[in-house]
Nucleic acid binder design. Sequence first.
DNA 1: CTGTTAGCGCGTTCAA
DNA 2: TTGAACGCGCTAACAG
Lengths: 334, 334
Amino acid sequence: MTVTIYDVAREAGVSMATVSRVVNNNPNVKPQTRKKVFEAIERLGYRPNAVARGLASKKTTTVGVVIPDISNAIFAEVARGIEDIANMYHYNIILCNADKKKDKEIRVINTLLEKQVDGLLFMGGAVTDEHLQAFRTSNVPIVLCATTDENGTIPSVDIDHEAAAFDAVQTLIKQGHKTIAMIGGTLQDPANGYSRFQGYRRALETAGLPYDENLVRIGNYRYESGVEAMKHFLELPNRPTAVFSATDEMAIGAIHCIQDNGLKVPADFSVISVDNSRMASMVRPQLSAVAQPMYDIGAVSMRLLTKLMKKETVEQAKVVLPHEVVMRQSVGSL
Amino acid sequence: MTVTIYDVAREAGVSMATVSRVVNNNPNVKPQTRKKVFEAIERLGYRPNAVARGLASKKTTTVGVVIPDISNAIFAEVARGIEDIANMYHYNIILCNADKKKDKEIRVINTLLEKQVDGLLFMGGAVTDEHLQAFRTSNVPIVLCATTDENGTIPSVDIDHEAAAFDAVQTLIKQGHKTIAMIGGTLQDPANGYSRFQGYRRALETAGLPYDENLVRIGNYRYESGVEAMKHFLELPNRPTAVFSATDEMAIGAIHCIQDNGLKVPADFSVISVDNSRMASMVRPQLSAVAQPMYDIGAVSMRLLTKLMKKETVEQAKVVLPHEVVMRQSVGSL
DNA sequence: CTGTTAGCGCGTTCAA
DNA sequence: TTGAACGCGCTAACAG
């Protein structure tokens, strides 16, 4: 049924070792022999079995990537960056959604390891001791993508979420805003949640502005929770004049909530967020946001992983990519 | 270094066959023996090698999915549907972006086959003879996802793109519109391009409306091409009163173009599209669109693939999922 | 219920 | 430059 390396060897009148050599581009083969083998391969329609190869060579040329949710535009962008670079280095990726749920994450990490991936890209929620434990039982390199572990022992590539949030809020402050609300993520989420909240507080503090817990609402990163949060702010006695959102989607929800209440952005409210997804320029007014280079985060982390897999020495195992605030139309001065 | 099934066997004082049995939940093992084996596994931290298993059993429990572009929200949604069901049936997915480029598609199909995937989900552009050729050399089931081949010989799951477009345009016609423009995709793309264009024409014809090629522009499915197309329409002497877009993104681009020119939707222009992505309700006015059940397309096609992989007989190898027009705010009567 | 024995398809010494 | 032989870690008969 399936044609193997033996069949090719017989057809070409050589040994299987020779076939293996030409398939793997080993230079120690006489050109004429090589030609004979290629012809036999062609004639038989031979397709190398990567599983057998993986067993023999202990390399699968596939890497595992655990991602929170591929249907989330932000992560999908990262995934594309990963796959492009993986492809460039002849790796394939096994993709697993884990929804930032610890149990699911641990589970997929293990099945990925069982499948003998050559490396692992982890994009998840918090990196707990259990994660560390699972990582430790593996002998393949791992890089954290768009996350970091607290003690920073694992290679990672991400932006500085705290600084990004700080810059966003400071932008608002520079425009004269003094009552600034925040729509955040759960503080359990170290990157998008906790760090961005810290940046918000530090910006307030630095400017000598008071912190008011009534001005922060925790959302789930999605559009709807943005409008919910904004509804709350609109009813406040000390209504804010600006809002900082941890994600584009929530920011857009907030903007629409404002507009639906007959108010205007940025005339009545300024809105800024972190992400700068494609959607930011696809709404009116166009959203001002701190740009997170999602594609690059994916690409760079995959590139880093290839180096690790080749056991190359890497100078910088913890890379922090730059962010930048891109001003569009949703922020105005007071 | 790595602990194998032999090590576990020795540690537990049984044969490797027995270890294999308990690992694979074979009932023919005395509970006590099973317990001994589990303990040994625990003690040694044994992790089954899926590659070796794959070689021996000729099954990898992984399926290949070739997708145009994971960073496109529509496809990402399909991918999520695929992965959820795959996960449910204990399959993993190897994801490959192919950008609807034939060469790239053929290439990834082959590497996927080399990796001995148990099945293939193909989501691409046109299914050419070369594709058919590549499919034929494989002996694993294949299902087309969000596409169809013309002669319909390959199992597939999709919506009826022609009918979806027809319904969208007819909605416009029912509101009294008589000059209706279309922003389409390349006619080379059988599903999103050609079929939707055919639906547009049939709707016009059915209503006795003339077809004017000046009223159709080909875009690239993205926002920017939507605004470009709309610019063109705005300058026409016989300016349309409504536009049908093949995708949400282009529709939103058109809406913004209209608004930026001081006109209003739906007062001055009605806009409708096919897709109904999350974005449709995240713009103002909210976009009316024919809903395409992307998640379900992914889920159903993966489910179909599992049946095929189990060699179950499937009644319906060509499933057409229903679409529905969801009216929001971007369509008004003339 | 358990163990023995063949492979699965290929990479890789080691000799020749 | 080539071939023979072994082993990668596991499943799957087949015996017992």
